[in-house]
Amino acid sequence: MFQRLPDIRGDALSFTIDGKAAQARAGETVASALLLAGVETCRTTPVSGAPRAPYCLMGVCFECLVTIDGRGNQQGCLVTVQDGMRVETQIGRGKRELGR
């Protein structure tokens, strides 16, 4: 698990992870927000179906791919989480689907 330090303040916002309500702070990335919401495994790979989680958080490794507002394979660590954003993990959906 990851936790914010107790004296950290910031504007709270709401988004969803796989349809369930979650909270984040303004300025956090989608990948950070997922980790802080206790969601670690964000996808399974298109090659073997192995589970993966964010690894570098700096846009290099492409492990934190998630579906954001209906668009698949977005790098969660490069997108700032927004109020009302719909984030979906890609567990069991390793390959990008057309139209998503």
Partner: peptide, 13 residues
């Protein structure tokens, strides 16, 4: 480095 980025950007550990 990822752990450090979480600390810098979200104040999280």
């Amino acid at each position: 480095g990822a752990a450090q980025i979480l600390l810098k950007t979200a104040g999280a550990t």
